[in-house]
Design a protein around this nucleic acid. Structure first.
Length: 411
DNA sequence: TCTGGGGTCCTAGGACCC
DNA sequence: TCTGGGGTCCTAGGACCC
């Protein structure tokens, strides 16, 4: 051990809202929220008036009548996020992006180059502010978990260093809800045992926590409370799943199928862009009373192609709704795919997917797109051989590869 | 005034195999 | 014929994160 706290957690403040304020200077200093349906991010001015994500917009306005609500620009946020992550890699190659607006850095190897971790944290904040015009908070500590808590304590627009040896006094007074992974349910369960702060938690023996919360959870909580967190900063982590969902009334089968096809398109083209595929398809349906149900299916071979995703998803969703709807409306449908590291038939699936994509770019109407996969299958036969294509189809438990045409009968 | 869209991880039961 | 333990895969659900 170096005796130095070298893990940084950098977290953009009110990210979406800060981008909008940056790009529309007239918004500066005013209560601003980014939202579509619900609040996605709120400036600190808005938070002071009780506006928080993920509150409904109407509820937010009732608390804050002068709230300015800006529609989100996701493409822009993704691009800016990339710029931020790029900037961070100047200070160390060990950057682990964990969401659109936060990342861990391990600067153990670069302190001789850039100065101690606190100096690096300050330099990051200055660079992000001056080059990208955005506020970012940084926490510095000996573990990932503690660095994350430190950046939270640093907000807004601050820097907090937890020096080695001071961890316990730093953690003791904080509420247990500050622990990563302890949400409202965990907080309630712990409160029932009189555990309110991380100090309270740290005083409980691990074996007792295990009986209260289950073995795994108990052990995990005990370790976090004592700042035992050996997880290294991992750059280049790959996503484990890809999904898309759509909220709104989906009670009518025709609307639902159209939405599912669009979701399958979105997920499929993202998979192919990444060169990934997956076997496990999960659908999620939420009813109008917010009751949510999932169904999943593991295919025998991986898929990355719109029509296969669509058919698997439509079958699951229709079955689920027949089984559970009980006269309720459907307010959300979602589709996701668990990715495989590597897979037989992946190249064939990707080739089929490319053909589908080409048809999409050509702007052909939906039923033409689906039919065009017939032609894609023919081309795949030439490229990969009839046997390979048939095998892929059999492995997907489909009667025949040409069945995309069936899907064109759907809306 | 009802709750977006993108993810991660864990649990638990049943099927199946050795 | 009965019994047991261990391991893996599949599915459904839930908590949590931003």
């Amino acid at each position: 051990m170096t005796g130095l706290a070298t893990i940084l957690h950098a977290d953009l403040d009110a990210f979406y809202a800060s981008v909008e304020v940056r790009d529309q200077p007239l918004l500066r200093g005013r209560p601003v929220a980014v939202g579509g349906g619900v609040i996605l991010a709120a400036t600190y001015e808005a938070r002071a008036l009780g506006v928080h994500a993920p509150m409904g917009i109407a509820a937010a306005r009732s608390r804050c009548p002068h709230l300015i609500v800006v529609p989100p620009r996701f493409t822009e946020y993704v691009a800016i996020s990339r710029q931020v992550m790029e900037l961070l890699t100047r200070f160390t190659p060990h950057v682990e992006a964990i969401s659109i607006d936060e990342a861990f850095l391990d600067v153990a190897g670069t302190v001789r180059l850039f100065g101690d971790p606190e100096t690096i944290g300050a330099a990051i904040r200055t660079a992000v502010r001056s080059e990208l015009g955005l506020p970012i908070s940084v926490g510095v500590a000996t573990t990932k978990h503690l660095a994350k808590i430190a950046s939270r304590v640093a907000k807004p627009d601050g820097l907090v260093v937890v020096a080695p040896g001071t961890e316990e006094s730093f953690l003791t007074p904080l509420p247990v809800g500050h622990l990563w992974g302890v949400g409202p349910v965990g907080e309630r369960r712990l409160a029932a045992y009189g555990v309110l702060t991380i100090g309270d938690l740290a005083a409980i023996p691990e074996s007792t926590l295990a009986t209260w919360m289950g073995r795994h959870w108990g052990r995990h909580l005990w370790q976090l409370a004592h700042n035992h967190d050996a997880r290294p900063v991992q750059s280049g982590r790959r996503a484990g799943s890809v999904g898309a969902q759509s909220a709104g009334a989906h009670t009518e089968a025709s609307r639902r199928h159209a939405t599912l096809l669009a979701l399958a398109d979105r997920v499929g083209s993202r998979l192919r862009r990444k060169g990934r595929a997956g076997r496990r398809i999960t659908v999620r349906v939420r009813f109008s009373d917010m009751y949510a149900v999932t169904r999943s299916l593991t295919l025998v071979a991986p898929v990355a192609e719109t029509t296969s995703l669509y058919r698997a998803a439509a079958g699951l969703v229709d079955g689920l709704i027949t089984e559970r709807s009980a006269g309720r409306g459907v307010s959300l449908v979602g589709l996701s795919v668990d990715l495989l590291e590597d897979a037989p038939h992946l190249q064939l699936e990707l080739a089929l997917g490319e053909e589908g994509d080409a048809a999409l770019r050509a702007g052909s109407p939906q039923h033409h797109r689906l039919r065009s996969l017939d032609a894609a299958v023919d081309r795949a036969r030439t490229r990969f051989g009839t046997a390979a294509v048939r095998r892929a189809a059999v492995l997907r438990e489909e009667p025949e590869v040409r069945s995309p045409a069936e899907a064109s009968e759907l809306p």
